[in-house]
């Protein structure tokens, strides 16, 4: 593939990671997602900035990724899930999300913007990730594989072609964004 050389270059990848991060952090700050009040506002359902940013990113990202895959330029990076891993982990994450008020990406951006509590949150995340690594052998044996999902993707689950599900998802996202704007949220 045309991009194999750059994909396998270790130094090129580190530089690309840094560059991607620069753009990501810049965008998060300009979007107001470096602010605790904006993130808590979303969880309290009084400020819909986070949902607007996420839905727009999903919409634009989805169209590009599916077109590139159709052209044979990229492959999807799908992770399998289970009740024990995805749902349980997701609930623990969500509680932490409300208590910290930043997520792993926005905490880094908020720290860059000068928020000391975000730095403390990042230290907490390293500790939490470290605890998980220690518990991993036990969790993997007892909980993580419990209730494994029978499908990896929504198209597999529903039994429709990925392109059709992507198109329907795009229309639903546009509708949702329109509704939010129409409600003045």
């Amino acid at each position: 593939m045309v991009f194999d050389k750059i994909r396998s270059g270790k130094r090129a990848q580190k530089a690309l990671g840094l560059l991607s991060g620069l753009v990501f952090g810049f965008l998060l700050q300009k979007g107001g997602l470096t602010e605790y009040d904006v993130i808590l506002g979303q969880l309290l359902l009084t400020d819909f900035t986070v949902v607007k940013v996420m839905l727009s990113a999903i919409l634009v990202g989805m169209v590009g990724v599916f077109v590139m895959r159709w052209k044979g330029l990229v492959r999807l990076q799908i992770k399998p899930g289970s009740i024990g891993s995805t749902a349980l982990g997701g609930i623990i994450f969500g509680v932490g999300f409300a208590i910290l008020g930043y997520c792993p990406g926005t905490a880094a951006a908020a720290f860059g913007a000068g928020a000391i509590d975000a730095l403390v949150g990042m230290i907490g995340m390293v500790i939490g990730a470290g605890i998980f690594a220690r518990l991993y052998p036990v969790l993997d044996r007892l909980i993580l594989n419990w209730g494994a999902f029978h499908a990896d993707t929504l198209p597999e689950l529903i039994g429709l072609k990925p392109e059709i599900v992507a198109a329907v998802t795009a229309v639903l996202i546009l509708g949702l964004l329109y509704l939010l704007a129409a409600q003045g949220l």
Partner: peptide
């Protein structure tokens, strides 16, 4: 909050960017 979030993110194998945006857009 950070400790819970770090634990939960690894437990669920992703966060608001990895699952929330990159994963959802791949359906």
């Amino acid at each position: 909050g950070g400790i819970l979030m770090g634990l939960g993110a690894r437990w669920a194998d992703g966060c608001t960017s990895g699952h929330g945006i990159s994963g959802t857009l791949q359906l």
